[in-house]
C-alpha cells in the first residue's frame, strides 16, 4: 500500500508543475491584453511609475527567466503581493480566504455523500418501488437545477422569509463555533445537493447490480443477515464506482463554490479569484489558482488512495 501511495504522490508532481505553467501563461496572456503596470499605477500613471512597476514585477525579463524566478518564489512559499494593494501578501489573502471555502466544500461533501449514500442504498433495496422512483425524480430535478439557483432559493426562503438562518455572511470558528456551523449550513446544502443527487443515483445503480450478484445470492443462501449482506458485502463493491463519482464531485465542488460564495456573500477562494480576474490582479490569480490546483490534486490523490483500500486489485496492479 505504501508503494501505491508513493507512486500516486510522485504522479502528482507533474500535475502540479502543469498547473504552475498554465497559471503562469494565463498571467502572461492577461499582461499581453493590457498594461498591468498601468493598472497598478492607476489613473494618470506617469511613465516613471509604469517603468518602475514593470521593473519591480520583472515584466521586462524573458519569459523563461520570469517563470523560473516566479516558480522559485512559489517553491519557497512566497506567492507575492497583490497588485492592487502592495501591502497585502497573496499568502495572507489566501490564508484568510481558503478556510471558508474548505469549510463549505467539506460540509457540503459530508451532507451530499452521507445523505446520498443513505438514499442510494434505500432506493436500491426495492428498485422500481415508490421510494426509488421518488428519489429518482428528486435527484433528476436537483441535478437539473444549477447550484446557485438552489442557493438563492435557500437564501430567500430559509434566510429572508423564514429567518431561521442568516442568508449572508460567514462566521469564523474563532468567533463562535455555533455561529460558524450555522453560517455554513445554507451554502453547504446548496453546494451539497447536486452531490447528494449524483451519489444517490450512482450508488443506487451499482448497489442494485451488486444485490443481484451471485455472491450476494450465495451469501443469502448461507443465511447471512440483511444488514450484513448490504453493509459488508454489497456496499463495499458498490462503493468503488461511487468513489470515482465522489472524487469528481469533490473537485467540481471546489470550483462550484465560487457561485455559492457570491450568492451567500462569503469571502472565499472562489470569490477572490473572480475579483482577481475582474481587477486583473495577476499575482492573486496565480496564487489562488495554484492553491486551488493543489487542493484538487490532493483530493484526487485521496480518491486514488481510497481505491486502493476498497479494491485490492487496484493496489496490486501498481
Amino acid at each position: 500500500m505504501a508503494k501505491y501511495i508513493g507512486f500516486r504522490l510522485l504522479a502528482t508532481i507533474p500535475l502540479l508543475f502543469a498547473i504552475a505553467v498554465v497559471t503562469f501563461l494565463i498571467a502572461v496572456a492577461m499582461e499581453a491584453n493590457g498594461s498591468i503596470a498601468g493598472q497598478v499605477c492607476g489613473e494618470g500613471a506617469t511613465t516613471e511609475c509604469i517603468l518602475e512597476i514593470e521593473e519591480s514585477l520583472g515584466l521586462n525579463d524573458p519569459l523563461p527567466t520570469r517563470f523560473v524566478s516566479w516558480l522559485g518564489d512559489v517553491l519557497s512559499g512566497d506567492l507575492g503581493v497583490s497588485l492592487l494593494d502592495r501591502n497585502a501578501s497573496v499568502n495572507e489573502l489566501i490564508s484568510e480566504r481558503i478556510w471558508p471555502s474548505l469549510s463549505i466544500v467539506g460540509l457540503s461533501l459530508i451532507i451530499g455523500i452521507s445523505l446520498g449514500m443513505l438514499m442510494g442504498v434505500v432506493a436500491a433495496i426495492r428498485p422500481g418501488g415508490l421510494v426509488d422512483r421518488t428519489f429518482s425524480v428528486a435527484a433528476a430535478s436537483v441535478i437539473a437545477a444549477p447550484g446557485f439557483l438552489i442557493g438563492m432559493m435557500l437564501a430567500w426562503g430559509i434566510g429572508v422569509e423564514l429567518g431561521w438562518l442568516s442568508p449572508v455572511g460567514y462566521t469564523s470558528p474563532s468567533e463562535s463555533i455555533t455561529g460558524w456551523f450555522k453560517s455554513l449550513i445554507l451554502p453547504s446544502i446548496a453546494l451539497g445537493m447536486p452531490t447528494l443527487a449524483i451519489v444517490q443515483r450512482q450508488l443506487r445503480s451499482s448497489m442494485a447490480n451488486s444485490l443481484q450478484s451471485r455472491y450476494i445470492l450465495a451469501a443469502r443462501a448461507r443465511g447471512v443477515g440483511r444488514a450484513t449482506l448490504i453493509g459488508r458485502h454489497a456496499l463495499p463493491n458498490a462503493m468503488v464506482p461511487t468513489i470515482t463519482v465522489i472524487g469528481f464531485r469533490a473537485a467540481s465542488a471546489i470550483g462550484l463554490t465560487t457561485a455559492i460564495e457570491i450568492v451567500f456573500g462569503i469571502r472565499g477562494m472562489g470569490e477572490m479569484l473572480v475579483s482577481a480576474i475582474l481587477n486583473r490582479n495577476v499575482t492573486v490569480l496565480q496564487g489562488g489558482m495554484l492553491v486551488v490546483g493543489l487542493v484538487v490534486s490532493t483530493v484526487n490523490l485521496l480518491v486514488d488512495i481510497s481505491y486502493g483500500f476498497l479494491n485490492p486489485k487496484v493496489r496490486l496492479n501498481k
Binding site: 429567518g163 442568516s166 442568508p167
Partner: peptide
C-alpha cells in the same frame, strides 16, 4: 463594514437584519 457584497446579498442581509 463589509465590502464587495453583491446587491442581492446586501438586500438579503438588510432584510434579515445582518
Amino acid at each position: 463594514i463589509q465590502g464587495g457584497l453583491s446587491p442581492q446579498v446586501r438586500l438579503d442581509g438588510l432584510i434579515a437584519g445582518e
